[in-house]
Design a binder for these strands. Structure first.
Lengths: 232, 232
DNA sequence: AAGTTGTAAAAACTCGATATTTTCAGGTGT
DNA sequence: ACACCTGAAAATATCGAGTTTTTACAACTT
């Protein structure tokens, strides 16, 4: 029996543990939840201290975030948190509707039992998490929405959807608590999308998904001024 | 009159001159024209010598290319040129058709004289360059296609189209000289797209553009094996 | 007062060296 | 023969210092 002891001692870190990756994850989170205001200068040295790491990982992380469009880079002049605007928000909303519609339809078309089970699970985890913990819920919420799409068998499309989803989260946090005031049954909307997906009714699922986005979108648009800041 | 002398003394370097940017441009070019084979390991130290620069710029450039999906990164294990496959090529082709269709229609909808003139100019430059110099023509060719789209007033969409276009160039170079054997009048196709755009006929322009892509796509597909390598 | 120029501080960028991790070849025991 | 361990070599990732560029501000000119 001895010869299998070492077998799987370590769980094989699927999550990268490099300083660069940690800096990337931390900075991404900070930008999404609004710890930096749009356009704010991101000084290497400051971040280096905050994240307790070297300048190289910080720079690399910021470079990666640049391509996610969460950070803007000006040559020889450093990095800033990406600017926001109502136009940008509406562009993202429109693209999201378009691309997620496409991805969802492909997902449904490829639908199998395994996907169905992943969906149910992702939905359950989201529901169970509840709204108590904003950040944790946000993560489950994203996981559910991405699970709807990830059967589309199109990695590039998924990457785009992922990116756009993140950009949207940021606007949601910018609008802040006001979002709670919506008179909508979000839980019901999610359940209805799930149901349509399980029924393999692509048209219905896509319509419900897009309505879901557009309603939140319309609500958010009213809340934001031209620069994407909360109105009052 | 003196008070305007200094007005625009320096052309204000629009082209960034940092080592990172130069490394990025050089590596992007090398990957697009196929100087690295798909999946090839990109060793920092080797590239450092080839590009005659430090390790930091090389790493940052590779990070940026990662987000362009031209380079893949494996944590603690360095960078590789992105893999290719027929599936990937076809995914890119499909997305391109979809997104460029959308962008072109928006461009036409926003069409004005200035855009029309930019189009004519971009087309002329492409024609004038001729096929003598592959790389130069490639640049003009891209400029023309992007000019068709860039009036869509949607920066994020443009970024996606740009990225997909680059990914496609790479497959075009992979297929190599064989592409010349096509029995098609490419110049005519371009002229027809241009004409439809100038006429503000969005449906016709979009149809012609997509046919243009799908024809090249079908030709390329036949030429590539499952791993995206030339068949013979 | 408005604008220009010069200088000092700050920040970004780059480099070379060090530390950490991975890879690979050779040896050992089953 | 096969898997497993071991240790040297190679490559990556990270750090800290040095260089270059930008920014801020004050003094000077018109």
């Amino acid at each position: 029996m001895d010869h299998i002891t070492k077998q799987a001692a370590e769980p094989l870190p699927v999550t990268p543990s490099s300083a660069t990756h940690k800096a990337y994850a931390a900075l991404r989170r900070m930008i999404l939840i609004g710890e930096f205001s749009p356009g704010e200068k991101l000084k290497i040295d400051t971040l280096r201290k905050v994240l307790d790491t070297g300048a190289s990982p910080v720079r690399e992380a910021l470079s990666l975030l640049t391509s996610d469009q969460l950070v803007e880079r000006i040559d020889q002049r450093g990095f800033r948190a990406a600017a926001t605007s109502k136009a940008n928000f509406e562009e993202i909303l429109g693209l999201r509707c378009h691309l997620e519609d496409m991805a969802l339809r492909k997902s449904v078309a490829n639908g199998d039992d395994a996907w169905e089970e992943r969906l149910v699970l992702a939905h359950h985890r989201m529901v169970r998490e509840g709204r108590d913990n904003d950040e944790a819920f946000e993560e489950r919420h994203k996981a559910f929405h991405m699970a709807l799409l990830d059967n589309c068998d199109s990695p590039v499309l998924m990457k785009f959807c992922n990116q756009l989803y993140d950009l949207n989260i940021r606007y949601r946090y910018l609008a802040g608590r006001a979002l709670g005031y919506q008179k909508r049954d979000i839980a019901r909307e999610h359940a209805d999308i799930l149901a349509a997906a399980i029924e393999r009714d692509a048209d219905l699922a896509a319509r419900r998904l897009i309505d879901h986005y557009r309603q939140t979108g319309a609500f958010l648009t009213d809340l934001l001024d031209d620069n994407g800041q909360p109105r009052d």
